[in-house]
Design a protein around this nucleic acid. Sequence first.
RNA 1: CGGGGCGUGGCGCAGAUGGCUAGCGCACCAGCUUGGGGUGCUGGGGGUCGCCCGUUCAAAUCGGGUCGCCCCGACCA
Length: 584
Amino acid sequence: MTKVLFYIILDVMKIDKSLINTLREDPKEAESRSHRILLRGGFIKQLASGVHTYLPLGWRVILRISNIIREELDRIGGQEMLMPAIAPKEIWQESGRWDEYGDDMFRLKDRKGRDYCLCPTHEEIVADIARTTVRSYRDLPQIWYQIQTKFRDELRPRFGVIRSRQFIMKDSYSLDQDPAGLDHSFELHRQAYTRIFKRCGLDFEVVNASGGLMGAGESKEFIAIVDIGEAQVVSCNKCDYRANIEAAVGVGVTELFNDEALAEVHTPGKKTVIEVSDFLKVSRKNLIKSIFFTAPDKKSILILLRGDYDINENIIKNIFGFSYRAASSEEIIRFFGAEPGYIGPYGKEGFDIHADDLLKGTKGMITGANKNEYHIKGLNIDRDIKVNKYLNLRYVKQADHCPNCDGELNIKNGLELGHIFKLGTKYSISLNAAFLDEYGERKPIVMGSYGIGLERIMACACEQKGDDKGTAWPVSIAPYELYLLVLNPSENDVKELADKWNAELIANQFRVLLDDRDISAGIKFNDSELLGIPIRLIVSPKAVKQGRFEVLTRESGELLEIERNDVIKKCCQIREELYRKLNE
RNA sequence: CGGGGCGUGGCGCAGAUGGCUAGCGCACCAGCUUGGGGUGCUGGGGGUCGCCCGUUCAAAUCGGGUCGCCCCGACCA
């Protein structure tokens, strides 16, 4: 059995001496299954929106998760350290993220009025360490990691511990001399993450992702498929194509309409695609949406999209730059002389037009006339407007076609557990973290950044393994492995046997939760199920008399009656089997 | 930030046409009881009704403000 580093954990806990405090009723704020179980079971306690205490039971789960992560990161050569949770403004200004991060960053001032933040992530700090400690290509590659509290002032914390403002993250950073080295470090992380989530007993998928604010390099997410997931995963029903919807590329079908002359149509009060298509009794596919983007100091762009698709703004930002935003109503009115809903590509200049590739060659389309209460019909894209580029700019829809084969794409909800990506030289250049290569040439370090949300693993286990009664921890992350449930502990022979077995189980490296409380049986049964301890052994007067003992495996529900002399051996076997299954 | 909801012992809730010691269930403490699925009984402890201001002889209850929390959406590493 693995021991947790730095912490001494008693392998037995009497439940009535512990802080374990289960609730009979669901706390009213809990909506998701994991939130309900974690609160009711006394694993966590909320202090403020998105801020939680991990009570002893929950903390044991977190510690066991961290331990698995440590083992797997150490295995790929990671070196654990601990960086500060607060950092001065200056270092964040060097990368530009003091401004880019916006309101998601918790900020504070010290007594002298100097600005600090509570770090939402640590690329800048790593680059700062690297620029003074890494000098030569001989110092590379490196993998550094920490398990640390992160702070993000989320607009809307949700689902208890799943989207919170203070959370524990394992973040690691790779430093390499060149892109090939980065590829290798990235692959090592991909393997380590796969082992970590498997060992934690979770069902997950590895999908292509988009980098967002972190940079545009390759990135993959490890996503658990659960209903409450905030991410959407696109997957092909025929091949192994998997992508976050933010990064997914679907193949759609171009729809052709009759060519006809341009004409204005009166569309009073009809602004949205649905309103206009209903009003004119045409398919949504016959409409073109026009979305106007502006950026300071850059040429504005007008994006055209077929009416039945939504725009993926990530693509706009990745292709054209992060400073682009969808224009405000005021900007639109100023530029087009019409309200949003009535604007279009025809007859206006001063911006570039980029169109979704499903619009290529389309004729007879309907779009805004740049005049309030009017649209135009009969737009022939090649004849009437000048499109700079055709690009895939849309979100995938259910049943779009796969980019890699002839399969169909499905969309499911998922929860992001981990994310790995290739940063490249973004931070090393801006923070001047460089090394001398073997020819004496100064080069920026090539970085990668890799995160795992520890609480999300805990919550996800509850979502995936739990039921109406409570959770069913995978044995590898369970706070205790065996629930020793004692009925009528006041009877001497019962108590003696329970104590004897308790000692034997501990001798066999079991983490035992001993429930010999002098309360009614039902409470103990219900608690054992709510707390989700993998194996339950019952010692009762009846069982002592008959010499046969009940052993329940929580997750499978398998119930065994075991002869007295075989009980400890059987418990060991069940535990081994549970661990074995995780490594399959 | 837009929409909706909620703040009354640790948890879940009732009380709201202003009115007299603010209730119930669970949990907690003491005792008895029961003893394989939240047992029964008795006796206890615990709440300035989120906060502020106002109206009133009188405010948990009415009015205004404010803070917090939850849900839906928008936003986003």
